[in-house]
Design a protein around this nucleic acid. Structure first.
Length: 552
RNA sequence: GAGCCCAUAGCUCAGUUGGCAGAGCAUCUGACUUUUAAUCAGAGGGCCGCUGGUUCGAUCCCAGCUGGGCUCACCA
């Protein structure tokens, strides 16, 4: 290697000329780092130790902490070890070791001399010269390891001291015992570095709290913040519960296209992508609805899908451009059947998670004990807006109120849009719930079945919990002629500039013409449900990798 | 898209009425064989987000930009 002292010989630097030589104080160090593209980076002389460390192979951008750790990789190699072996089998987990120890007293445990071998991330190290305690974290939890010189031997213990850092992945084999302070511990007589970490872990006490770093480097967040791991474990549990619940009731799980030639099934702006070979524009789906109902036509009378939808709209604590929904459809059922199913499903889920249908969200109690409140859109608007309910049937009143409340496009909107606009403005966010809001106007529900007695409203409900829409369900429109008329109305809206209006899907209409059984369908926002059940204030806390702008 | 707030060491944060940049943890050196935020002594580590402006001098004041957070708008 031998980069002869690269530290700077800056040529004459014209005064007052721009970077990188603006500040004289910083010049030496900066110069050293910057001036050697593609060559071995500079390592302070006192750290070189003539061992081929810190030389070529070391990334220029690495800081001293990382160079130090890279040096330890060379130390490992010098001791005949590889820093990234993949041949180590692991017999135990932390939880298995705990289970094996059970409630044995320290003496009983010592008597049984249980041998275990575990692997995991070193998340804490407490060194005492000739002995070291460490905390090892694996998929099942944490367990303490104890490594000491007279058990390991001088050479092995010396290597351990020299190369093992917090953040490394380590394998230990030894005997279980309980320390004086009562902690179950693996007293190791063998160890092996399974992966040497170059980057240091965040601080042990405050951990990683910078929200941006937590989302961008979720891997670090998951390493150090146990409660974050717990959120995503719980998310998996929730999804499994729902899948199991529906499967047991004879629903078939299916997967339908995420890339669709026509984006349908929801009022939303889609993302557009392109298939090169077919030279065809495709939309990322905004909903699986129209495909799932094609399956009803096909004879799968109960289907569900758990998957992502994509909506090219705003980002907030409630919205991520891609989000997960479960949608399910049941033939020969109506939206009122789905109210019962939803009450049962979600109260059972709450009970599975909390042992009770009651739980706390952001300091408020949510109670999923059935039956849940039912109220109409007009009742909710009247109650929370302080209007007499009769007046909400009067178009002039609706329009004036909507304009006053700042409902978008209130001047031109239909009566139904005005009512829903007012409801959303004054009522939705104030409904504590769980509540089924019903009697949506037909204009805002182009895929729903009209009510038999009152054709201006549809047989639909939204489930509101803590002011947020958690689910949306309706009896499905299966009259192909009516559906074509609804699509055509959506096209007229689109022509008037409504980018969220539905497209007309000819193939879907063709499917309806073959006959779709009467059915009801429901979509539940998984992310929002998980927020509720993990007490998370932001949707980004329950999505592993939320969308962020490109890193600067 | 708009308003408000934030950006300083690997992490968590102080700070400078504008004058060579600070702490704790982490790292390195030394002591230490039942600790768990181990302890003790010493050392190193900074493009103070980026680009300009003002100034003798900017991490600090001003402007623009980038990224993030919250609220609002849109939406589920």
């Amino acid at each position: 290697m031998g980069v002869a002292d690269p530290v700077v010989r800056p040529g004459p630097v014209p005064h007052g000329e721009g970077p990188p030589h603006r500040a004289r104080g910083g010049e030496r160090r900066r110069g050293a780092r910057r001036r050697h593209h593609g060559v071995c980076p500079e390592v302070p002389a006192r750290r070189r130790r003539g061992r081929g460390d810190g030389g070529c192979g070391v990334n220029e951008a690495w800081n001293d902490l990382m160079r130090e750790r890279h040096r330890k990789i060379e130390d490992l190699r010098a001791a005949g070890e590889t820093p990234y072996p993949n041949d180590q089998r692991v017999g135990w987990t932390a939880a298995a070791a705990r289970a094996a120890a059970g409630t044995l007293s320290p003496e009983e445990l010592a008597g049984k001399a249980i041998r275990v071998d575990i692997a995991g991330r070193v998340v804490a190290l407490r060194r005492f010269g000739k002995a070291t305690f460490l905390s090892l974290s694996d998929r099942s939890g944490r367990i303490q390891g104890y490594v000491k010189k007279d058990t390991l031997g001088d050479a092995e213990y010396g290597l351990f001291q020299k190369v093992v850092d917090s953040g490394d992945l380590l394998w230990l084999e030894g005997t279980l015992f309980i320390t004086r302070t009562g902690e179950l511990t693996v007293q190791a007589d063998r160890f092996r570095v399974l992966t040497k970490a170059i980057r240091p872990l965040p601080e042990k006490w405050h951990g990683l709290s910078d929200v941006e770093t937590r989302y961008r480097q979720r891997y670090v967040d998951l390493i150090v913040n146990d409660e974050v791991r717990e959120i995503f474990r719980r998310r998996a549990r929730i999804v499994n519960f729902l899948r199991d619940y529906l499967s047991r009731r004879d629903f078939l799980e299916v997967e339908t296209p995420m890339m669709q030639p026509v984006a349908g099934g929801a009022t939303a702006r889609p993302f557009v992508t392109h298939h090169n070979t077919l030279d065809m524009d495709l939309y990322l789906r905004v909903a699986p609805e129209l495909y799932l109902k094609r399956l009803l036509v096909g004879g799968f009378e109960r289907v569900f899908e758990i998957n992502r939808n994509f909506r090219n709209e705003g980002i907030s604590t409630q919205h991520n451009p891609e989000f997960t929904m479960i949608e399910f459809y049941q033939a020969y059922a109506t939206f009122t059947d789905l109210m019962g199913l939803t009450e049962d499903m979600l109260s059972s889920l709450a009970t599975a998670l909390y042992g009770s249908p009651k739980f706390s969200y952001q300091g408020e109690t949510v109670d999923f004990t059935p039956p849940w409140e039912r109220l109409t859109v007009a009742q909710a608007a009247a109650r929370y807006g302080g209007f007499p309910e009769e007046r909400l049937a009067d178009e002039t009143f609706l329009r004036e109120t909507a304009v006053r409340l700042g409902v978008p496009d209130a001047a031109a909107a239909s009566q139904g849009h005005l009512l829903v606009g007012i409801y959303e403005e004054v009522a939705e966010r104030r409904i504590a719930g769980p509540a089924f809001v019903t009697e949506y106007p037909i204009e805002v529900s182009p895929l729903s079945r009209p009510n038999g007695a009152r054709p201006r409203i549809v047989d639909r409900f939204e489930l509101i919990v803590r002011g947020r829409e958690i689910a949306n369900a309706f009896s499905e429109l299966n009259d192909p002629v009516d559906q074509r008329g609804r699509f055509e109305e959506q096209l007229r809206r689109r022509e008037r500039g409504d980018e969220e209006a539905h497209f007309l899907d000819e193939d879907y209409l063709r499917a309806l013409e073959y006959g779709m059984p009467p059915a009801a369908g429901e979509g539940i926002g998984i992310d929002r449900l998980v927020m509720l059940f993990t007490d998370s204030p932001s949707i980004r806390e329950v999505i592993l990798f939320p969308l962020l702008r490109k890193e600067g």
